[in-house]
Design a protein around this nucleic acid. Sequence first.
DNA 1: TTGACAAACGGAGAGGTCTCCATTTAGTAT
DNA 2: ATACTAAATGGAGACCTCTCCGTTTGTCAA
Lengths: 202, 202
Amino acid sequence: MINDENTPRIRTERRDAAKNRQLILDTAHRLFEQFGVEQVSMNQIATEAQIGPGTLYRRYRNKGELCQDLIKDSVDLFFEDIEEYLKENGQVPPHQKLKEILSFFIRFREKKAQLLTGVEEAKSTNPLKPRTKSPLYAELHQILVELFDEMEANENTYSQSAFKADMVLMALSSDSYFFQKDVRGYSPEEILELLFITFIVK
Amino acid sequence: MINDENTPRIRTERRDAAKNRQLILDTAHRLFEQFGVEQVSMNQIATEAQIGPGTLYRRYRNKGELCQDLIKDSVDLFFEDIEEYLKENGQVPPHQKLKEILSFFIRFREKKAQLLTGVEEAKSTNPLKPRTKSPLYAELHQILVELFDEMEANENTYSQSAFKADMVLMALSSDSYFFQKDVRGYSPEEILELLFITFIVK
DNA sequence: TTGACAAACGGAGAGGTCTCCATTTAGTAT
DNA sequence: ATACTAAATGGAGACCTCTCCGTTTGTCAA
């Protein structure tokens, strides 16, 4: 039974730091609301919050991390919904569970479009793999893989669950999803259906 | 029989402009070669070429467009290869032609990795859809759609060729492709095989 | 209380993208 | 040759991201 944290000393966050964190979060939330995530710069947030840029960047290395923090609670709720659905529907065929979860995610994506896009564009400073770092991606990937595995349980084909899960999530990235909506003109429901046909049903 | 251009007057490019264009191209090529596309800024190119930033930006709105111009010839050759292959193999089953073309593209992608990534990151300034604008994307999409249609010719399922083509190209975008290589650890051949299994064979 | 010190802070500044516009210049018509 | 004009130029400057580092400030132990 190991302690939750075994680092020598858990220095609690200083009071002024905590206050500033909340100030940043509030300011960002307000500015994002008012001008849209895309239009607001880190600079602007720092200025509006009356803190130095250094202070802002020491806490969030880029706007993506800030968005990540702003959306954290919603993400937690999202996964709770999924867990609950899966727990209550263990006997439902996996392809149906898969579809339902994609539907969950599409709704989530629609509701949190701007912040989610903000999170995904954290590529700056980062040498590679922006999406991997996001816990959202990793956790969702894990869930999809398990469902794909469940689907293939009887077949003896070479497992491509991980790859298929990556493809599905790729298809639901801001980039691809809004391309399908805005350029190809599909509705969220049509996109769900196309994903289902393409990746799930045989 | 309409003339190739029916605009009132085709002002030919001024000599100094043409010279500058070549100067920019040469300078960019050299710097890209030396430091890598990613590491070279528009600023640096302008400075090195001894022209003002304004001059550079009036010709190429961003680094993506510059990369696009630098890679143009290779892209033309790439499509010539494809056309030739398709012309000579009209009777080959479509799924095989598809695989071959994906293989072509993967080789192309490997050879021109940096510039291709540079092209895809032209999202700045642009409100949306970076990939649509690229003629590479559009033309390749068209070819894939035709082959998917050919495959589905006998089946009477709801056509999803356009969507599938988008998904395949998404999977072969820098973002996804190098994620699969660097994080998932797949080789180009394995990626080709996974794409084939996922999108092409029934 | 009072150091001591790590954490937090702020802002100067390096370097980037991109625009604007006064000025220069290549072609063209006279 | 000369004048005209639209294209091309370049650099100042607005605004951005991000780092570095000297200074300030909570926190804790003595």
